[in-house]
Design a binder for these strands. Structure first.
Length: 427
RNA sequence: GUGGGCGUAGCUCAGUUGGUUAGAGCGCCAGGUUGUGGUCCUGGAGGCCGCGGGUUCGACCCCCGUCGCUCACCCCA
């Protein structure tokens, strides 16, 4: 009973979600489920660990995530696995394995793991929600995915959002651009920042994403991918931007936006919140990955999707002053045992089976104590049973009204009476 | 990987230049007054002051180490 400090705590960079925070999570996730439903998506569940190759080939060995943030381990059968660092690669692997009819529209919410030092809005185990559409390169789908993200974000109260958008090209124009960029960087190697002076060859695109002034100066004067797009890629990008405008969504062309994973082709985008500061202002992002299925052993198949960090979204909501849980989780009735009737268990069960949200107290507490618990439970109504001896009537008491109002009701009319009162108190 | 800040009750925190039984508010429990909650009053439970070592007659306070939390840099959600 008098343990000093508990022997265990959640591991570094992980956290438990309970209390008011868990209501926010429940609300956020159910709201996201609503939005994906409207757009024709269905839920996909995949394991949180995969063969390491799913991620090394998927997100790319040149990505920072793979190089220094992967949670890899060997199991008892000496197989090398990795905890998923993001959502897309697993979903694409599942697509290749099961080959659902296309276009396949799947949504997910899942833990994701990055081995790095935790800080505000960034954890070793965090959670991501997102969608993927696999099996079409129609720019209308890019528009849908972005519109879904935008609509969902706004529905949870994020208003200070900006959409950044870019095209990474595909195939020949991407290759031609990479060659040009490499040639350019080679000539300006000495002017790059400390890290990229030696590392740029690993992944030249990452230099575009570098925020250090040395790199910015160099890349500003160099080639940008949007100027190198081939005709089909150009047309695709124009169709995406045009389609967004048609549905009333405006974005900013952001030629530096290359994102963290190697698999992106053509459309890439990111939503940043001006309510969050600096380095962690991205609340979500995604793009197209037209070569990813092949990398994972499938047929050439186009795909596009986006993902968002749940913790980051909640942080952004808070920063915008939104604390409401987005979902109603209020008890309808709290049953108080007056002690002079029979056991209240059967009555509580009957009400629950009738569809009401019902709670009660335990441990034989006093009437006063039960009323206190009832009050704090947030229930709309208290139901007092057995307060005036055994009988067939119970008392309904409104816990919300400032002037307490009570009504005695015969037990056989109880459900109707409660339903009736609840309808009134909700108005 | 690199730096800064912080570890005292379930929570938020006080704790005087080191000095005896370590405090407050909130929460929790019980009782009183409202027939029966919310307001108010009374009482109570709950702390090896993160952990280990050192200095000292004496350490929550000073020193060293350690673990943990947190914030920032890098990068990402």
């Amino acid at each position: 009973m008098n343990d000093p400090t508990p022997p265990f705590a959640a591991p570094v960079g992980t956290h438990d979600v309970l209390g008011p925070a868990s209501a926010q999570w429940e609300g956020l996730i159910s709201r996201f489920a609503d939005w994906t439903y409207r757009y024709g998506f269905s839920l996909v569940l995949t394991p949180i660990f995969e063969d390491e190759g799913v991620f090394s080939r998927g997100i790319g060995e040149g990505s920072d995530v793979f190089r220094k943030e992967m949670y890899v381990f060997e199991d008892r059968g000496k197989r090398r696995y990795a905890l998923r660092p993001e959502g897309t690669a697993s979903v694409v692997r599942a697509f290749v394995q099961h080959r659902p009819t296309t276009p396949w529209k799947a949504w997910y919410v899942t833990p994701a793991f990055r081995y790095e030092r935790p800080q505000k809005g960034r954890y070793r185990q965090h959670h991501q929600l997102g969608v993927e559409v696999i099996g079409t390169d129609d720019p209308a789908v890019d528009v849908e995915v972005i519109a879904l993200a935008d609509g969902f974000y706004r529905s949870i109260g994020l208003e200070r959002l900006r959409l950044l958008i870019n095209s990474m090209g595909h195939g020949a124009c991407r290759a031609a651009y990479l060659a040009a960029l490499s040639e350019y960087l080679e000539g300006h190697e000495l002017s790059l920042c400390d890290e990229h002076r030696t590392q740029w060859r690993r992944n030249a695109l990452r230099v575009l994403d570098c925020k250090r002034p040395e790199c910015v100066t160099v890349t500003d004067a160099g080639p940008f991918l949007v100027d190198w797009l081939c005709e089909p890629c150009r047309a695709h990008f124009d169709a995406v931007v045009g389609g967004l405008a048609e549905v009333g969504i405006s974005g900013t062309l952001s030629p530096r936006l290359v994102r963290g994973f190697d698999y992106y082709t053509r459309t890439t985008f990111e939503f940043v919140s001006d309510a969050l500061d600096g380095a962690q202002n991205a609340v979500g992002g995604g793009g197209r990955y037209d070569g990813l299925t092949e990398r994972l052993g499938g047929p050439p198949t186009s795909g596009v999707g986006f993902g968002s960090g749940v913790e980051r979204l909640l942080l952004a909501r808070t920063a915008e002053g939104r604390v409401d849980p987005l979902i109603e989780r209020t008890l309808d009735v709290f049953v108080v045992d007056g002690g002079e009737g029979g056991p209240i268990g059967p009555l509580v069960e009957r009400l629950r089976r009738a569809g009401l949200a019902v709670e009660r107290a335990y441990d034989g507490r006093s009437l006063k104590a039960q009323m206190k618990v009832a009050d704090r439970s947030g229930a709309r109504l208290a139901l007092l049973v057995g307060t005036e001896g055994p009988g067939s009537t119970v008392t309904i008491r409104d816990l919300r009204a400032s002037e307490s109002t009570q009504q005695r009701v015969p037990e056989h009319e109880l459900v109707e009476a409660l339903t009736d009162r609840l309808t009134k108190t909700r108005l």
